[in-house]
Simulated scan of single mutants.
Amino acid sequence: MNPTHTGTTRTGARTRPGVEVSASDRPRLAPHVRLTFCRTRQRQILLNPETVVVLNDTGADILALCDGRHTVAQIVTELGTRYQTVPDDEVRQYLTRLVARRWVELDDG
């Protein structure tokens, strides 16, 4: 995924293309984005205006925890209980790409 948008989307929330997400950030889905289950595909999908993103299980699990309450560190810990190994840097890189696309917003931890 390449960064396509920059800027702040609303007070208290920020997007930071090109900057890694920190462990204390609290990610949440942007207001125009929705995580839902697609019966036809039998997969979780991310709905954006004019875009549908079919997610793999790990991506869906990460986004399900992006509720503005969990920190990135807590998300990594929770995923560690579900999977054997969860590389912290890969989760942060994934979230960084979603922030750059303005699909996820960050609140300071």
Rank of each mutant, 00 (worst) to 15 (best):
F37M: 04
A73E: 08
I62R: 04
H32M: 05
A30S: 15
R39A: 14
L106H: 01
G59T: 02
L63E: 04
G68H: 08
T6C: 11
A13L: 11
R28V: 08
Y83N: 04
G7L: 12
V86N: 01
L46V: 06
C38F: 11
C66S: 05
R16V: 14
T71H: 06
R34G: 07
A30E: 05
P49M: 04
R97K: 08
L29C: 05
R28A: 15
V91K: 00
Y94I: 05
H5R: 13
L47S: 07
R82F: 07
Q84T: 10
T85D: 07
A30L: 08
P31W: 10
R14N: 06
P17K: 06
R34A: 13
Q84A: 10
T9M: 14
F37P: 01
E20T: 15
P27M: 14
D57V: 07
R92Q: 05
L98I: 06
T36N: 04
C66N: 01
L46N: 03
L47E: 10
R97I: 11
H5M: 12
A60E: 02
P27I: 12
T6P: 10
T9K: 11
N48Y: 05
Y94N: 03
A64T: 11
T81M: 10
S22N: 11
D107H: 12
Q93S: 13
R16G: 06
D108L: 11
H5W: 12
E78G: 00
F37D: 04
P3E: 10
R82S: 12
A73R: 03
L29I: 04
R10Q: 13
T6Q: 12
R69E: 10
G18S: 14
P87L: 09
M1I: 11
R41P: 02
G59A: 05
R41Y: 09
R92W: 01
A64E: 11
R82Q: 15
L95S: 07
A60D: 02
E20V: 12
S22V: 13
V91I: 12
I45V: 15
T71W: 03
Q84L: 10
E78W: 06
N2G: 13
R97Q: 12
T4A: 08
G68P: 04
P87T: 05
V19Q: 15
D107M: 14
V104Q: 02
D107P: 00
Y94W: 13
Q84W: 11
P31M: 09
V21Y: 02
R39P: 04
T4P: 00
V33E: 05
I62D: 02
T96R: 15
T11S: 13
N2S: 11
P3I: 08
V21N: 00
L29H: 01
V104K: 02
I75Q: 03
D57Y: 05
R26W: 01
V54W: 03
T77Q: 14
T6N: 10
V76D: 01
L35N: 06
G68C: 08
Q74G: 09
A64D: 11
V21D: 02
I75D: 01
L35R: 12
N2Y: 11
T85H: 09
V21L: 03
S22Q: 13
P87I: 06
N56W: 09
L98R: 09
G12Y: 03
Q42I: 02
W103G: 02
G59D: 02
Y94L: 13
V33N: 06
W103Y: 15
T36R: 10
L95H: 07
P27R: 09
W103D: 08
V86D: 00
T85C: 03
